[in-house]
Amino acid sequence: MADFMLNYGGVVMGAFGAALAVLLSGIGSARGVGMVGESSTALMIEQPEKFGKSLVLQLLPGTQGLYGFVIALLALGQLTANMSLSQGMFIFMSCLPIAIGGWTSAVFQGRVAVSGVNLLAKNDEQATKGIIYAVMVETYALLAFVISLILLNAVSF
């Protein structure tokens, strides 16, 4: 086992990191988008004309998944079969910010967006404010993304 880790541990850990970046942020986005989708569907019963705005609200928590996807692509680009364990661990760590930050921020953003759908249902004209509230949450996903990105390229092995 120790031999295996020494020989292949690097690429395994690197791939694990890339997988987590997509997986966790994707899980968060899926939950967020799903929540907003459910409440928007209820809105369509009475007010189908608000479809456009509700779609914008639904999309907002979806971006974290895309940030995770981008980081995973960049991490994949650095994988080689015989990379060292420390390099693989480094890639793994670099993926953590967007994986975890993206995950939780997407869920919370989804919750704000659901309130945004309530706002849209009751007061159409103010709905853009609901969108802006939801965007406030996204700042932290963006920060996580920036740090993951910088980390990935910060050290050359």
Binding site: T63, L66, Y67, V70, T139, L142, F145, V146, L149
Partner: peptide, 8 residues
């Protein structure tokens, strides 16, 4: 975010 959004 100016950089991050352009990049992603």
């Amino acid at each position: 975010r100016l950089m991050a959004l352009g990049l992603s």
